[in-house]
Design a protein around this nucleic acid. Structure first.
Length: 271
DNA sequence: CACGGATCCTGATGGC
DNA sequence: TGCCATCAGGATCCGT
């Protein structure tokens, strides 16, 4: 469920309760994608300070050290009712003075990793190759154009790779390319400055709008308060194979790129 | 070194 | 109802 907007919505929904919470106990379920890198008990007694976001990672700042959390494909974070048992797909619990912060992740592609700081080699390995923050000031049209100019892979796969710009997953890549009128299969290096400008704008637009709408609901994304997002109803092409394009009424096409589904309108999106 | 493909894991869905 | 194949919002690793 989580692309940048869902992660950001999650961050916003836990930020208040995180601040100042004292860790009382740490419980783990089944193994996640990467090991925690520290004995869970050693986190007891630390205080959570704030939660930031880098790409699709949440960075839980403690008075000492940092927890990097990733929601993978199916993860969600929420505050659980006190004294509630861990369920089948609950794999990480942080019991605090402000409640139980709980990671639920059926597919277990997510992770919780402890690092001392962002210069820690493990943090460097996970965060070091990440590209520009699409909602940050470093993501400007010229740098975007220059980064794409060097890449011969299809623009859709470049967006997903996250080393040029982070946070754009499969849904928003499809949607942004639709808004920009760009065929997902076009080689990134072949896009004109004018077209990369349009794409830059589309990415900002689609991500900001999704955050404002509370994220996507594909199966059922909900934030830590249990409120659903509504973006999915707004999708122009994602998940709409064979249905009429909302702009020109041409049937939406679906193809595979790098084992991921890509949806596009063959008329609105030019090669 | 840039790319495509396989891979991790579980659940939902659709065809027969 | 069961069984099987396919698909799912991510990202790394490995071989070419």
């Amino acid at each position: 469920m989580p692309e940048l907007p869902e992660v950001e919505v999650t961050r916003l929904s836990i930020a208040d309760r995180i601040a100042g919470a004292l860790i009382l106990e740490v419980r783990q379920g089944k193994p996640l994608r990467w090991p925690l890198q520290v004995e869970p008990e050693s986190l007891v007694g630390r205080r959570l300070v704030a939660v930031r976001r880098r790409g699709k990672y949440l960075l839980l700042e403690m008075d000492q050290g940092l927890l990097l959390m990733h929601l993978g494909m199916s993860g969600s974070l929420s505050f659980a009712a006190s004294a509630s048992e861990m369920g089948k797909h609950d794999h990480f619990d942080l019991q605090t003075t402000q409640g139980i912060l709980r990671l639920n992740d059926p597919r277990r592609f997510g992770a919780v990793v402890y690092v001392r700081n962002e210069q820690d080699p493990v943090a460097e390995k996970l965060l070091g190759r990440l590209g520009m923050e699409p909602l940050g000031s470093e993501f400007d049209p010229l740098r975007f154009f220059q980064a794409l100019r060097a890449r011969k892979t299809s623009i859709k796969q470049i967006l997903l790779a996250g080393d040029v710009v982070v946070g754009v997953g499969n849904i928003y890549a499809c949607e942004a390319l639709f808004l920009a009128g760009i065929r997902p299969t076009v080689a990134a290096s072949r896009l004109s400055r004018r077209r990369t400008d349009r794409l830059h704008h589309a990415i900002c637009e689609v991500l900001l709008r999704a955050v404002a709408m509370g994220g996507s609901t594909l199966r059922n994304f909900s934030n830590a308060q249990g409120q659903d997002g509504h973006f999915q109803q707004e999708a122009m092409v994602y998940g709409r194979k064979g249905q009429d394009c909302k702009v020109c009424e041409t049937p939406v096409c679906a193809i595979r790129q790098g084992q991921r589904s890509t949806f596009f309108c063959p008329k609105c999106q030019k090669p």
